[in-house]
Design a protein around this nucleic acid. Structure first.
Lengths: 110, 110
DNA sequence: ATAATTTATCGTAATATTGCGATAAACAAA
DNA sequence: TTTGTTTATCGCAATATTACGATAAATTAT
């Protein structure tokens, strides 16, 4: 069906999945890493840096922006993107809760 | 196209994306959380706990196992699953490198 | 006003994911 | 051996994602 039955999961579980999903494509990982490395940069630079077509990069940027992980600032004809620090920190909190769960003691079944 | 052009990204970027992708579905998040909570449990319990059909759960377990995040142990007719601690820790390392990047100073563009 | 530059959106083809019924496989119990 | 129990696999339908050419929109420069 290709459709996640989100209504049967907790808000937290869905939230983790939504964040994880956006990191589930190497282009978006590369975009974010580049924004971290350069502090901020224009859409066009990302098109050059990553080897995908401009509409494709624009689409990935849109998803990152929709989740609030990046912000875009219009400057003339170009748009400058950067990490949304506040939301990135909030996202990390959610993901850490999930990833840093206590590992069970050594008496498990496997 | 629905096909990520993995060859244009670094191994690290692809690795992050592959891990993130498996967390990109709430059912798999729920499965992992349940395994953490119960230390280990049978496939059937997961079918009861999460409200999806048995083949669907089996498929999600297969993906988690393929990435090495869980292990399965046959016990009679049932299979006992648990977190693979070593691989989970290795995965956390990879994800932390990405998530815990230094936030740029407050002089960004946006 | 016209042309150039940059980014966003639309439309669409190719591929991937999700969910589950049907069924097979593996084992235990009677 | 037959029956029940549990999990895995197959096959398929429905939906989602990815990529990009074409084009629109917005702005600047001439």
């Amino acid at each position: 069906m290709g459709l996640a039955k989100t209504e049967m999961f907790t808000d937290k579980q869905n939230q983790i999945a939504v964040f994880a999903k956006v990191f589930g494509h190497p282009a978006r990982v590369a975009i974010l890493q580049h924004l971290f490395k350069t502090d901020s940069c224009f859409c066009g630079n990302l098109v050059d840096e990553i080897g995908l077509a401009q509409p494709t990069i624009s689409q990935h940027l849109k998803e990152l922006k929709y989740l609030g992980l990046i912000k875009g600032n219009v400057e003339g004809t170009s748009v400058c993107y950067c990490i949304d620090k506040e939301n990135w920190t909030a996202m990390k909190e959610v993901m850490s809760d999930f990833l840093d769960q206590d590992l069970p003691a050594d008496d498990d079944c496997c």
